[in-house]
Amino acid sequence: MNLQMKIKEKNKASRPTKSNPPDGTAVTVVSASDHASANADGLQSDKIFEEISRCVHKTGDQLVSKVNAVFQWDIMDGGKIVAQWTLDLKTGSGEVYRGASRKPANTMFILSEHDFMELALGKIKPQKAFLIGKVKVKGNLLLSHKLETILKEYMKG
């Protein structure tokens, strides 16, 4: 099962319901148990990085030799960083960890939790997200394309 299918399966049970009142505004109804579960489980992006970590654990040596870079993600909410993740594909056999990069990152991605999930689930292409301002990139933009290509190859299995 690929990464997108795994995440869709995990998310099916915890989706909030939507109802549309007569005035046309959209309302999301979240039960108390859904809210507690979301807080206890953390961000949805955490699950993505756990999957990436499993991939790096299995094929890190190959990824390091192909990518040779450090990437940091700043997940934002309301203008504040709510999570940071680092993918080190430069040292040893690679590593994924929560927090800011321990060494200078070659590329940093700054985006909202929602936009990160849209990218991870394939609902928006990375290039489009960048061009319309949903993702800000600091550092080497070309490495981000290389990372996308390599991760797609390794995450299929």
Rank of each mutant, 00 (worst) to 15 (best):
I81Q: 04
I150S: 10
Q72N: 09
G94E: 10
N2S: 15
K156R: 12
A83G: 05
T25F: 11
L119C: 03
K134Y: 06
G79D: 04
I48C: 04
S93M: 10
D115V: 01
G139A: 04
N68K: 13
A13Q: 11
K136D: 06
I132Y: 02
H35A: 15
Y97K: 06
G78F: 02
K125D: 15
G139W: 07
G79M: 10
E118M: 10
G78I: 01
Q84L: 02
P104V: 03
D61V: 01
C55L: 14
I110C: 06
L63Y: 06
I7L: 15
L147K: 05
T86D: 05
D61P: 00
E118C: 03
K146I: 05
M1S: 14
D61I: 01
K152R: 14
G94R: 03
E153C: 04
V56M: 04
E113P: 07
Q84A: 08
D34I: 05
A100E: 13
N106K: 12
A83N: 12
G78L: 03
G94T: 08
Q44C: 00
A38P: 01
V30M: 15
L121A: 08
W85K: 12
P21R: 11
G99W: 04
L63D: 04
V70Q: 00
I132W: 00
R98K: 15
I110H: 13
W73H: 07
K146M: 07
E95S: 15
T107E: 07
S112N: 10
N106V: 08
E113S: 04
T149V: 09
P104W: 01
V56E: 05
K90G: 02
S101T: 07
N20Q: 15
A100F: 00
F49E: 01
G139C: 04
W73S: 09
P126C: 02
K146G: 02
E9G: 02
I52T: 09
A13L: 08
P16N: 13
L121M: 13
I150M: 05
S19I: 15
D61A: 08
A105F: 05
E50F: 01
G24K: 13
Q84C: 09
D41A: 14
R54N: 14
S37F: 13
K90C: 11
A40D: 10
G94A: 11
G122F: 09
Q127N: 05
K152L: 11
F116I: 03
L121S: 08
H114C: 03
T86G: 00
K146R: 14
K66Q: 14
L111S: 12
D74H: 10
Q62V: 02
P126D: 06
G99R: 12
A32Y: 06
P16I: 07
T17P: 00
Y97P: 11
D23M: 07
D46Q: 13
G24H: 10
N11L: 15
D77T: 06
E51S: 07
K156C: 01
A105S: 14
